[in-house]
């Protein structure tokens, strides 16, 4: 069964009197356990699609099926309950957490809200989550702003997997990290996917990263799909103008595309 099916998704914004379509009739599907990448230049509508899929904003037209249900008709308590299966990791891990929060509180919230563990069990669960993302349990009492950027993004991933989701949306989740940390986080994501069959909707403008982690890729241009298909096939031989431009603008990819695993 298809996990996420998006069809004809459209979102328009009014800017200075005229209406622009940030997302214009976009359709794609994500299968369980797979990574679908959304790539495209700045302003092509990637983040808008992420926010639409997460129901953080409402579309002007289109359909979203998630786990076989019409996701757009879910509301209130039913929507909040279903959110356990659909999580997100943001680009800036510092902005993604309440500035007053501690690591423990950040991880405690989803466990409490979705009644995944009793109050007495939660500290052990939090420790287990931290270990699953390669951190140690002694980080729990620390304030979010007291840990490193890489640690913070691991905590964000721990929070996302706390509710055993079937899909995680990652909007530029590794773009703000320096190169060595980026590699570690990508490995963590691949490892989690292999073990728990989590699907990723992976948003990135870095085609090198996309090629390394995604099974399939959708290239966006000005809110429309320019090209889509197997990630390596598309990136190694782009057909669309925007695909060619994006590949040409990725120097790391050009020089080392033959060595990327």
């Amino acid at each position: 069964m298809t996990l996420l099916a998006v069809s004809d998704l459209t979102k328009r914004y009014r800017r200075g009197g005229k209406t622009i379509a940030a997302v214009d009739g976009v359709s794609f599907a994500v299968e369980p356990g797979e990574t679908l990448a959304l790539a495209g230049p700045s302003g092509s509508g990637k983040s808008t699609i992420a926010r639409l899929v997460l129901r953080l904003i409402e579309p002007d037209a289109g359909n979203i099926q998630f786990e076989g249900d019409d996701f757009l008709t879910l509301n209130g308590a039913a929507l909040r309950a279903r959110r356990a299966h659909l999580q997100m990791v943001f680009q800036d891990p510092l902005a993604a957490f309440n500035p007053r929060a501690t690591v423990a509180r950040v991880l405690d919230d989803p466990l409490r809200i979705h009644a995944i563990a009793s109050r007495a069990e939660r500290p052990a669960r939090i420790a287990a989550l931290l270990e699953r993302v390669g951190l140690t349990a002694d980080l729990a009492p620390r304030a979010i702003h007291e840990i490193s950027g890489g640690q913070r993004q691991r905590v964000a991933i721990a929070r996302a997997i706390a509710t055993n989701p079937s899909l995680i949306v990652l909007d530029e989740a590794v773009s703000a990290l320096d190169v060595s940390v980026r590699g570690q986080i990508l490995e963590l994501l691949l490892d989690l996917q292999a073990r728990e069959r989590i699907a990723y909707l992976f948003i990135s403008h870095d085609l090198g990263v996309v090629r390394a982690i995604a099974h399939r890729v959708v290239l966006l241009d000005a809110g429309r799909i320019a090209e889509s298909g197997d990630a390596r096939a598309v990136i190694d031989a782009p057909q669309s103008a925007i695909g060619k431009a994006l590949v040409a603008a990725a120097p790391r990819l050009n020089r080392s595309s033959r060595q990327v695993p």
Partner: peptide, 26 residues
């Protein structure tokens, strides 16, 4: 409009809890 408010919605927090636990103190 901050990300952490979106994050609180994503984990399924009740809007009242978001307003008074996440937003008000800040």
């Amino acid at each position: 409009e901050r990300d952490y408010v979106a994050g609180a919605r994503v984990i399924g927090m009740h809007p009242m809890a978001i307003a008074f636990r996440e937003v008000l103190p800040n």
